[in-house]
Design a protein around this nucleic acid. Structure first.
Lengths: 164, 164
DNA sequence: ATATCATATCTCACTACTGAGATACACACG
DNA sequence: CGTGTGTATCTCAGTAGTGAGATATGATAT
């Protein structure tokens, strides 16, 4: 019977302890991220925006006019994705492109008045919602978690450089 | 000149401190997640798998035969996505579906011999790579981070239930 | 039995991207 | 100058999903 093949489940118990601890952290991190992301995504969707679109608007709201390349780095999308996101936000009337005088290959994206008005309206609600979503950790725990995540993120990004 | 609209960038300084701390954690968490995800994604791609496909294989490798609904919950994809992922893994010869005797609406997915062989080959390398990616945190820090992320994830998921 | 409601998977039209290559510009050097 | 190399955005075909509804089965109450 081909159908009855049923391997014994593998356990991580045979791995070095360091690897077990690291895998556990990775899984837990992914779950935590997904749980919070759901809140942020809902919030964006309530305005007909994808999470990435919302991220671009948030970035422009807080930094003002920004080069597309910087948007790409901060919102963590591909080069094509950046063009796509900005195009959609332009269509929706929230963003416009501007030429960059110093380097004519580059473009800025900036909020339109309407985009600015949108963010003023929805950002405070978003901040409250994120605060509620993270309330499971107290203030000190949140600061500890931030410190650890920053350290982890920087090191993991650096180690990407190292091994390609 | 319509083109010269250039709003002052908004700062988060006017938000309540709790919200500032929470937003900072959320941004830092997202960056850390993305940095580690890149390693995991590269690893999966080296075998021609998406990260979600790899996640399914990993789950089946460690748990054995699993109901599609449980896969959906653990790998964090939509219902349609689960069908899609399992279909693709079946095409590739790594997974097969089985009927569930107790509930004929349900199906199990399980690794084929070939799928089992694949995971035995690549999982140890994956574990090493994740361990290297997370090396920025020491053992104690990793355990602390895991505890905080678990607490955060559970609370954030629960608070989704609460407000819909 | 049968009606009702809940749950599990599947279908399918749609969307949000990705990534490789194209194009346009910048900059340094002979 | 030109020429070569690097960088920023854009194009476009393709992929990996989403999510609402369809279908099938299960559970419960009358």
């Amino acid at each position: 019977m081909t159908k009855s093949y049923s391997p014994a489940p593998a356990s991580t118990a045979e791995l070095p302890e360091k690897e077990q601890v690291a895998l556990k952290l990775w899984v837990t991190l992914a779950r935590a991220y997904a749980a919070v992301e759901e809140h942020a995504r809902d919030d964006a969707r309530a305005e007909g925006l994808s999470l990435a679109e919302f991220g671009v608007l948030e970035l422009l709201h807080h930094r003002g006019q920004t080069l597309l390349g910087d948007i790409q780095k901060r919102v963590l999308v591909s080069s094509g994705g950046t063009t796509f996101l900005v195009d959609k936000l332009v269509e929706k009337g929230f963003v416009e492109r501007r030429e960059c005088e110093e380097d004519r290959r580059s473009r800025y994206a900036t909020l339109t008045r309407e985009g600015e008005r949108l963010m003023r309206r929805i950002f405070p609600r978003h901040a409250r919602r994120i605060e509620r979503a993270l309330r499971g950790l107290g203030g000190t725990e949140q600061r500890d978690a931030t410190r650890l995540m920053r350290k982890l993120g920087l090191a993991a990004a650096a180690s990407s450089m190292a091994d390609g």
